[in-house]
Simulated scan of single mutants.
Amino acid sequence: MTDGVEPSRRWYDRDGRPIPPEEAERLLGRPGYDRIRATTVMDMADLDWIRDISTVWVGVDLGEVAEPPLIFETAVFDRDHTTLRHRRYATEAQASEAHEAFVVAACEEANDPVVLETTDSVT
């Protein structure tokens, strides 16, 4: 424990710096601060096939007391919003790189892919 707070429950800003819970609450209140990217891949050959890829800042360490803390998550969902896969990352750059890799994988899985970027990060 550090400063009376378990490391896995500490808050971090998007640059990975520890912040007090009050600052995390303020950042979570900023529209778009938690969103890194959101992409939808549709298959025009099969309109029931959709993959939504989402990358977010969660602010708290999602790892098992990882060093550095895992404060970003990239996930792939199907059309029913079932999580197909997800990974956790320490930096925004790692999470963004993974997001792009998941988009490429979804495009390779689709027969006639169309890619829609639905949000951009707001910092």
Results as ranks from 00 to 15, higher is better:
residue 81 H to Y: 05
residue 45 A to S: 13
residue 39 T to D: 01
residue 7 P to H: 08
residue 111 N to Q: 14
residue 112 D to H: 11
residue 52 D to G: 08
residue 97 E to A: 08
residue 19 I to Q: 03
residue 107 C to H: 04
residue 69 P to Q: 09
residue 20 P to V: 11
residue 109 E to G: 08
residue 102 F to L: 13
residue 51 R to D: 10
residue 26 R to H: 14
residue 84 L to R: 08
residue 115 V to C: 09
residue 85 R to Y: 03
residue 80 D to G: 04
residue 77 F to P: 06
residue 55 T to G: 01
residue 11 W to Q: 03
residue 116 L to S: 12
residue 11 W to H: 15
residue 56 V to K: 10
residue 4 G to A: 06
residue 109 E to M: 11
residue 46 D to R: 06
residue 33 Y to C: 00
residue 94 Q to G: 11
residue 50 I to W: 11
residue 87 R to I: 01
residue 46 D to N: 14
residue 66 A to T: 14
residue 56 V to P: 00
residue 22 E to M: 01
residue 51 R to A: 14
residue 101 A to Y: 05
residue 84 L to P: 01
residue 116 L to R: 13
residue 105 A to S: 13
residue 31 P to H: 07
residue 121 S to W: 11
residue 83 T to R: 06
residue 100 E to H: 10
residue 76 V to S: 11
residue 98 A to E: 06
residue 29 G to R: 04
residue 9 R to S: 14
residue 63 G to D: 06
residue 18 P to I: 06
residue 10 R to D: 01
residue 76 V to Q: 12
residue 102 F to M: 15
residue 116 L to E: 14
residue 36 I to N: 02
residue 74 T to N: 00
residue 24 A to L: 03
residue 111 N to P: 01
residue 93 A to Y: 07
residue 34 D to A: 15
residue 25 E to L: 15
residue 60 V to K: 11
residue 8 S to I: 10
residue 68 P to G: 05
residue 76 V to M: 14
residue 58 V to I: 11
residue 64 E to R: 05
residue 29 G to D: 07
residue 39 T to K: 00
residue 90 A to T: 14
residue 78 D to H: 01
residue 109 E to L: 09
residue 54 S to R: 15
residue 122 V to W: 07
residue 79 R to H: 12
residue 3 D to M: 02
residue 41 V to Q: 05
residue 21 P to E: 12
residue 89 Y to C: 07
residue 105 A to V: 04
residue 24 A to Q: 02
residue 23 E to V: 14
